[in-house]
Design a protein around this nucleic acid. Structure first.
Length: 268
DNA sequence: ACACTGACCTGCGAGC
DNA sequence: TGCTCGCAGGTCAGTG
């Protein structure tokens, strides 16, 4: 379940590994992974060099010479770099043969991830109608308060809305609300200025700590790539039986179609 | 216009 | 042991 910290970790890992390398060949093994025309995708990428590595929300953006390769990992997507002659792992859907002889494989057991090629003139601000980045200046308490007051949904649903804030997924939404002492099912309408301030501060604190620790999910990265995802040790409520703060039992209920974990003692 | 639901997929674990 | 079933969740299209 790659969320912002996992995507950021993937990006930094890949940047250190493949920046400046050229794509010599592209092989698509599962057509639906690539949006649009497969032939065109291949033609646009062959001969292009990885120049810059960017992220917007949960989207990876690989800036090449004359195009941008956009990739979304959805739930299980990951990249693996194979040394020359190594066999691609199971569920490999796209292979990029690189100029140093290695293969960059896109691996996705659930086939949910998507990628496409676009021009370099992309508008990052309005990219996929995403809201502000959590670390952007525009993500303020007054923004959170005003957006919450517009809606009739639960706070959890607000945090998961990529148009409100980009990059938060199910795990971090639960963790942020736990840190704020707010129940995921609490109505957006009941938000206070103090709550909004807590959401901004805890969102930034939790995401930056997760990035520092290399993300949460172990599935996304394999140990041989040197990235293990230590943030899973810092999880307080999501998927837990006992609250990491007070030790009382964690409750689970579905909010907006997603499993939501919270501590009824710590969260009001 | 907003809010909710189901589809997309496969692996895994629970229960029989 | 081996089967079925439900769940996992990011995004978007479709529905109310």
């Amino acid at each position: 379940m790659p969320e912002l910290p996992e995507v950021e970790t993937v990006l930094r890992t890949l940047e250190a590994q493949i920046k400046g390398l050229c794509i010599e060949e592209v092989v698509i093994q599962y057509a639906k992974t690539v949006e649009g025309d497969a032939q065109e995708f291949v033609q646009q990428l062959q001969g292009q060099t990885f120049q810059e590595f960017m992220r917007r929300g949960k989207y990876l953006l690989f800036v090449m010479d004359s195009v941008v390769l956009v990739s979304h990992l959805r739930m299980e997507g990951r990249y693996r770099l194979l040394s020359h002659g190594e066999k691609p792992p199971r569920h490999t859907h796209v292979i990029f043969a690189l100029s140093d002889g290695r293969d960059l494989c896109y691996v996705d057991s659930r086939k949910f991830g998507r990628m496409y090629v676009t021009g370099k003139d992309i508008d990052l601000e309005h990219f996929h109608d995403l809201g502000p980045e959590p670390f952007a200046d525009s993500f303020t308490a007054s923004y959170v308060y005003a957006e919450a007051k517009k809606r009739k949904t639960a706070l959890k649903t607000l945090l998961l809305d990529q148009g409100f804030i980009a990059g938060i997924g199910n795990i971090y939404a639960d963790e942020i609300l736990s840190a704020c002492g707010l129940r995921p099912g609490r109505s957006c309408q009941r938000i206070t200025h103090r709550d909004a301030e807590a959401i901004v501060q805890n969102t930034r604190q939790i995401l930056s700590e997760a990035i520092r620790q290399g993300g949460t999910t172990i599935h996304t990265f394999s140990p041989e790539e040197g990235v293990t995802g230590l943030f899973q040790l810092s999880v307080m409520v999501h998927g837990k039986k006992a609250c990491g703060r007070c030790g009382n039992s964690v409750h689970m209920r579905r909010i907006g179609g997603r499993s939501s974990y919270y501590c009824p003692v710590c969260q009001k």
